[in-house]
């Protein structure tokens, strides 16, 4: 009896028609429970004035019309500037550093790899607190003391708009560089050695090998990094929150997600918060669709 039961279960797992669904099931369940359902609720709530979670009032598009204000436009601007800076940095540095670390002539390769990777393992909050101290506004702050010893004047980093963006980008760059470098590095290690050898026989130098062999071979990984950087850029919250955790003076640190947080959880305006969330969803979706389409990721049978 028991044996046949096991066999029956086994046969389900080996069944080509059923097995894939069983293996996907955990993901599908968690997707519907923790992503799809909240998204639907958010869209629903964005048309409501939410007094408490069981006491809502339909207000039509009022939440969306309230979005047309200085703060939200500033938040979109800030998120966009931040994302653009991150995209530029992440398209240049991880691949370059991976290229350097992949070359056999470099000494202490493993040390450098770990050194660049380790920041990825830290939590943004913990690292952020350290960075907040490093970029402290006063003269005894770490960076400011360097600036002063070089003959400059102390910069209140957290107060000006552009230095505000700078310190967020520095934190995110320091943290994300490692993981993206590892992606590039592992992609580079799959490139067959013969390609390099034949290029060398043809007289190509290191730079043109990098440009014409390495880069095209790891294109899928680069697209992956680009996509993730855009998504993460627009939904960035923590990097701003660690620097400005009480107020967002002059729009500093007020990204789109921070605006959701502020309106929904601090000001108790879930309806407006949901509307911002829906708009954010469409922004990310549009940008990523355009980007993926222009890289030809939807074409079939390309590989």
């Amino acid at each position: 009896m028991q044996k046949s039961g096991i066999i029956r279960i086994k046969s389900i797992f080996y069944n080509k028609n059923i097995a894939p669904y069983i293996f996907c099931l955990p993901f599908v369940i968690s997707f519907f429970l923790f992503f799809f359902y909240p998204i639907c609720t958010s869209i629903y709530m964005s048309f409501m004035k939410v007094i408490t979670l069981d006491n809502m009032e339909f207000v039509g598009l009022k939440n969306y019309s309230r979005l047309y204000n200085e703060h939200f436009l500033n938040a979109i601007k800030l998120s966009t500037i931040y994302t653009l800076s991150m995209v530029i940095l992440m398209m240049v540095f991880p691949v370059t550093i991976a290229g350097l670390l992949n070359s056999k002539s470099l000494r202490f390769r493993n040390f450098f790899r770990s050194a660049i990777f380790v920041p990825t393992l830290t939590s943004v909050i913990v690292a952020g607190i350290a960075f907040r101290m490093i970029f402290a506004d006063i003269e005894s702050g770490f960076i400011n003391s360097i600036i002063i010893s070089l003959g400059g004047k102390a910069v209140p980093f957290k107060q000006y708009y552009w230095t505000g963006i700078l310190i967020m980008v520095v934190l995110a760059f320091w943290r994300d560089l490692g993981i993206n470098m590892v992606y590039c590095l592992s992609a580079m290690q799959t490139i067959p050695e013969e390609l390099y050898e034949s290029a060398r026989i043809d007289g190509a130098n290191d730079i043109s090998i990098f440009r014409h062999i390495t880069i095209p071979s790891i294109k899928p990984i680069l697209i992956y990094i680009l996509t993730l950087t855009i998504i993460n850029g627009y939904r960035m919250f923590t990097e701003g929150y660690v620097y400005w955790n009480e107020a967002t003076p002059g729009g500093n640190g007020l990204t789109i997600v921070r605006y959701i947080y502020q309106q929904a959880f601090q000001k108790n305006d879930m309806g407006l918060g949901s509307a911002i969330g829906v708009v954010l969803l469409f922004i990310i979706l549009t940008i990523n669709l355009i980007q993926l389409k222009s890289f030809g990721l939807f074409r079939k049978g390309d590989d």
């Binding site: 402290a136 006063i138 209140p156 957290k158 107060q159 009480e246």
Partner: peptide, 12 residues
């Protein structure tokens, strides 16, 4: 002048 850290509650 500006308060260091922008707020009297800041560590700075």
């Amino acid at each position: 002048i500006a308060a260091g850290g922008g707020s009297t509650a800041a560590e700075e």
